[in-house]
Design a protein around this nucleic acid. Structure first.
Lengths: 355, 355
DNA sequence: GAATTGTGAGCGCTCACAATT
DNA sequence: GAATTGTGAGCGCTCACAATT
């Protein structure tokens, strides 16, 4: 008796070593391969007895259906593709992490590629994912949704994330970049600043443009703004921070288009012995944890990244399962201003003249 | 003439709208499908004339081979899978970014999943990637390479990254966690500290264990160490930092098992008006940019993440292309100590007694 | 005749072999 | 006979239909 158990165990191990197919399962369960398929997909009733035998055989053989064969038929690959400008950096890492979590919940797998903001890389990624994914989540602030769609030859469902689109009826998840900066502008004005430096993002990125416009259009007449081009990196914030320090009269606040460049600017100030917010205030945008954790902590606008990622996945998956969309295809999230240490001090209209 | 051009253009657009197959290409080029396959794979000589016709037809139809059909045959999917503990956090984001870049260079695609350090999620990810990837890059410091291999039923090539393995002959890319901490320990001892607090990582993670052991085993008799359990997060560093502040006598240095928890501890100190490194020094581990950019900048041990990622991909790809491995399968990178502001001050044996 | 089963074609490709030049 | 081409089988599955109970 013991010997038999051992033998069957050994057999199992041996059988499991080689990849088995529906054929093997069918043979072992003594049924036809279509019965195996029926059990696998629950696509038609199967007698209790056969079902049990099939399930047993599947287990013994450690059978897993070959996804390639499946997708050759029904085209479903069980995979969702994401193309983002970058993977690194807190914003994108959190976005990707959110996508991963949400995609897991819907039993999909995640294929990922960074375009590095290069159209060439973007196209390569797109072509690579052709027929390998059931749907795409695309963030391309430097392109437009329309431009992206001309690059896609087949008819995969696409959900856009933080990507400009002029046309209606696109599935896109956005957040109000402009309004976020409007809130920063009001906050800065309230603090009594009269001269500000603005560190922008990449000039071809629509989110960077919207942020800059939102700020410049809201700022009152009494607040002069000097703009510096940047690229959303820590380094660009750092270098611009150094430049700003050499200005005379010196601005009393640096408004950066994102957290990372704000932290870079702040580092430049602290390194040069300029106290924040004592001598100069700093604000960011994105609501990253880096902004929360810095000393002093950074005033910013919170972008609910996890929520956006979950929404994007939800919209895409419901498209894939051909459910009718209840929610409108275009979702724009509101952003919340988070005031922290870096902009706490109240300035007075005259204070900076004395610096 | 103009009309003809327009017509053929329209035809092209029309044809490209539906996914075309080798069959369509063959028909259009007036050759057999195997000739198309030969052109596609360059697997046998084809006459110049036919080759030209095939390439023209491919272009006109915007034909892309269906990867599912291909992988059903030769099993190559052109995809590499990566399973990491997390996706978020600078260390993992940089790792992922490095993998993405290296994988792109070898013309593969990247499939990714976070195990969240849960064996259940790990297995789900593994099963999901079955037959969808040609090879796997796995980081699972909380498991061992041997344990992981028992979970994999098929025979995919695997390269381990920062994962413990007792057996020889594994393909694994590691870095010397122990030696890195030895360097930190020597540095701290050199600075004249006599009482240190150590903030550890997850107790089940082998890298966390090695770091802690490396530190404790190197520290000289004159330096007492109080250990605090942690989990590599900013929050665990922050909370432990607060606890450490209430100690009497107070340690003069906090050695954290990674940068993120070091930054958390530093934040706790600064928030409570304790100057770093004036009253207390802090050190990290990983060499993240967050450690570079903080104020004060953080002494740490640099882990060459991008290099490790590139190595992992290189080793895996050479396994896949069945080239004989010239390099030994096990690579362990040395780590460099980077001394920064957070641990600059020289303490004297007696100084802390006076606190 | 209704419930359950099996047979055979085919998804889009590649590869061995046979048939052409 | 050597170079180039085409034919047909089959990878592992699912689905329509026919055949069984």
């Amino acid at each position: 008796m013991q010997f038999e158990v051992l033998l069957s165990l050994l057999l199992c191990v041996f059988l499991a070593l080689m990849d088995s197919t529906v054929r093997d399962v069918a043979r072992r369960a003594n049924v036809s391969i279509s019965t195996v398929s029926r059990v696998l997909n629950n696509s038609a009733p199967v007698s209790e007895d056969k079902k049990r035998r099939v399930l047993k055989a599947i287990k013994e053989l450690q059978f897993t259906p070959n996804p390639a064969a499946r997708s050759l038929l029904g085209q479903a690959t069980g995979t969702i593709g994401a193309i983002l400008p970058h993977i690194t950096g807190e914003f994108f890492a959190d976005l990707l992490s959110g996508l991963d979590g949400a995609i897991k919940k819907h039993d999909y797998l995640l294929m990922v590629s960074a375009s590095r903001r290069l159209e060439r890389d973007f196209i390569t990624a797109l072509r690579g994912m052709y027929k390998r994914v059931d749907g795409l989540i695309i963030m391309a602030p430097e392109l437009s949704a329309e431009r992206v769609l001309t690059l896609i030859d087949s008819t995969v469902p696409v959900v856009f994330l933080n990507t400009h689109s002029a046309t209606d009826g696109m599935f896109s998840i956005n957040f109000d970049n402009r309004d976020g900066m409007v809130k920063i502008a009001r906050h800065v004005a309230d603090r009594g600043h009269t001269l500000a430096a603005f560190i922008g993002g990449p000039s071809d990125a629509f989110d960077a443009q919207e942020r800059q416009q939102g700020f410049l259009e809201t700022v009152p007449d009494g607040l002069r703004v000097i703009c510096y081009p940047g690229d959303f990196t820590f380094e660009s914030g750092y270098k611009n921070g150094q430049k700003i320090l050499s200005l005379f009269p010196r601005p009393t606040v640096i408004v950066a288009a994102n957290d990372l460049s704000a932290l870079g600017a702040m580092r430049a100030l602290l390194e040069n012995g300029v106290s924040v917010p004592g001598e100069m205030a700093v604000t960011g945008f994105d609501g990253t944890r880096g902004a929360h954790f810095s000393t002093p902590s950074l005033t910013t606008v919170n972008v609910p990244i996890g929520e956006l990622a979950a929404n994007a996945v939800r919209v895409l998956v419901s498209q894939l399962s051909e459910e009718s969309m209840e929610t409108p295809p275009e979702i724009t999230a509101d952003l919340e201003l988070i005031v922290r240490e870096s902009s706490l001090k109240q300035y007075h209209p005259d204070s900076h003249a004395v610096v």
